[in-house]
Design a protein around this nucleic acid. Sequence first.
DNA 1: ATACTATCTAGTAATCATTCCTATGTCAAT
DNA 2: ATTGACATAGGAATGATTACTAGATAGTAT
Lengths: 154, 154
Amino acid sequence: MQKRQFAVSEEEQALRLAGLRVTPQRLAIMRYMKGTKSHPSPEMVYDHLKPEFPGLSPNTVYQTLHSLEEAGLLRRISMEDNVYRYDANVEPHAHLVCRRCGRVDDTNGYLEPLLHELLAKGSASTSWDIIAMDCCFYGYCDDCRERPDALRGE
Amino acid sequence: MQKRQFAVSEEEQALRLAGLRVTPQRLAIMRYMKGTKSHPSPEMVYDHLKPEFPGLSPNTVYQTLHSLEEAGLLRRISMEDNVYRYDANVEPHAHLVCRRCGRVDDTNGYLEPLLHELLAKGSASTSWDIIAMDCCFYGYCDDCRERPDALRGE
DNA sequence: ATACTATCTAGTAATCATTCCTATGTCAAT
DNA sequence: ATTGACATAGGAATGATTACTAGATAGTAT
């Protein structure tokens, strides 16, 4: 028989590597973040996990997301509505933000070279120490564009 | 003698063109916004004008900035700290944000062609209706980089 | 296995930016 | 000058986030 009694999940490993304790809440939050492309806000994370963890506190979600961000496992992004959102994709990429429904998508990889160039040239063109870049496109997603109601007359 | 009794300021003209009423508060806010490069938050605008307008309400500042933004005279930008900031420079350009002191500068014009290209390619590479783009560089400004205290050890 | 200790969680209260509500005041067209 | 629509100011309300704290739990040494 194989010696794989303690199958250590990818998430658990990442937590340990970051020097963070492994708790059920953290594992669940990480699993959710890794499995979604919707760039959830703390509130969305909380709502999603509340059924699984009835005693979960919003506070824990805030703190966990913050710890994971500090550990480099998540990226925090700020949109126009002053609500934080988190992204498990740490690679440099830009975001599409819908002005109507608030949805946030990733831009496709096609832009990546340009983003790298922008970061490089941006860093080179200033005396500041640049350590990160964030780029957002604002507009209307496919769903919202097709529904003229409450959009812009027409 | 010349017939220039009613020297209409640039700001007044812009307000009228936008269909907004001309009030002392609005003129003052516009003047301040045009004269600064510091991308003030509503609070900063309020603090700056309070001496001149002892009765000024933060509310008025919020509303006025909002009206001016809707009229296209200002641009609202969102940084990492979930505090709104406003920019009288409506031309497309990116921002430098200091992670330590919060200062916000404009990037120099050198990046403009790249930003235009990014907006064009970004719009072309998605089915969404893109109407705006925002790009921020995060790091440490000259002052904060030179002061190691509370920065990052060293 | 047990005990210990640092860290984590949850719950409440506090904070901060922003918006809502409304009475009063003011601009500008007649 | 009169008037009606829009602005302002002030206080209360909202909503996201953080602070504080007591109790629970993970990880480690025994």
